[in-house]
Design a binder for these strands. Structure first.
Lengths: 183, 183
DNA sequence: TCTTACATGTAAGTAGTTACATGATTGA
DNA sequence: TCAATCATGTAACTACTTACATGTAAGA
């Protein structure tokens, strides 16, 4: 149950419409929580019905018309409660690792190219994060809320760095492996 | 759509019953793909109906009676097809990072203890993986399928190591931060 | 016979994905 | 007026989770 809390956080940082939220989820929020516009609109409706957020007045509520939301005190309280609650980490699911294990049984045909493609994707992602870091967290500034946000971005950067290293290592192993037949 | 392929891989490695699969998903397979027994039984039914696996003969098909499955040629072919298919990485979702970002807005109360708890969980997980590595991949053995499986385990080990380092760093930052009020 | 462990399943609900629908606004 | 973009939404489906149901086998 994290999507509503992701939305509350985003709206507290800055009141937004559904489409603006979607864009923010595609960018900074997306590096640890992704969501499509369909999810977001549905969830905005629920949160409004529960009295945790409200549509900003002055905006007419018609289809095709922009509608911005802000967080109500009950929403802030719910977010604070959730943030402080103990939650176990979810077990990861990684299809690429699964495919590597499958390849040990049915052969590695096609996987080398996939590893290279993923390596490229992770390198691009890392470059994007580093650009965000350079722009949003220049050396010197040191406000507490910046330090927390920087910490989160650092997790994204270090994770991408890990994947890049691992994929390079995996590609080396692949180059030393015999052909593509099942084993 | 990875669960059926995870099951096919596991059954190719060794024909098993639903409960045995559940146990294997709790152990080695679980470090990159988790599944509950409910998911597994449901999926076994589907895979059998599709003709990708079959129940081993000689076992009576009664409730409460063990029923083992093996992969049919069509199942192996499907797994090989899937392994070679291009698939983009799924965006990650990490509730702890989300909570940290929320804490930048509503305050860090309760989060320090959570970070310590997660650190402990990751340290245990790492110890478990290192034990598996010591047991299953002693230096010297070098069969190709072992190298692939070792590579997958290495990803698990390195990921846990990353989280441990990041959590320690985060805890340091926390100790330097002012109190728990909203910012 | 009672409990525990083994073993397979059903049902209901939640979360996420994919495909499609509808209308407003702006510029060529 | 046409196309593109902005903007909000519905519907159907798939995957996953949580709670519960049912029966067998073995040992105290």
């Amino acid at each position: 149950m994290s999507l509503p809390h992701a939305i509350l956080t985003a709206l507290l940082e800055k009141p937004s419409s559904g489409l603006e939220l979607t864009r923010r989820f595609d960018r900074s929020i997306g590096y640890f929580w992704s969501a499509t516009h369909q999810q977001i609109y549905r969830e905005l409706g629920k949160l409004e019905a529960e009295g945790l957020i409200r549509a900003l007045p002055s905006e007419q509520p018609a289809r095709g018309q922009k509608k911005s939301y802000e967080v109500l005190p009950a929403g802030r309280a719910e977010l604070a409660r959730w943030t402080a609650t103990a939650q176990d980490p979810k077990p990861h699911r990684d299809a690429l690792l699964l495919r590597l294990r499958a390849a040990a049984v049915v052969g590695t045909a096609g996987l080398g190219a996939e590893l290279e493609r993923h390596l490229d994707l992770h390198e691009r992602q890392l470059a994007e994060y580093l650009e965000i870091e350079r722009r949003d967290f220049p050396p010197g500034r040191n406000r507490p809320e910046d330090r927390l946000r920087h910490l989160v971005l650092r997790a994204g950067i270090d994770l991408e760095t890990f994947w890049i290293q691992w994929l390079r290592h995996a590609l080396e192993e692949f180059s030393e492996l015999p052909g593509d037949g099942p084993r």
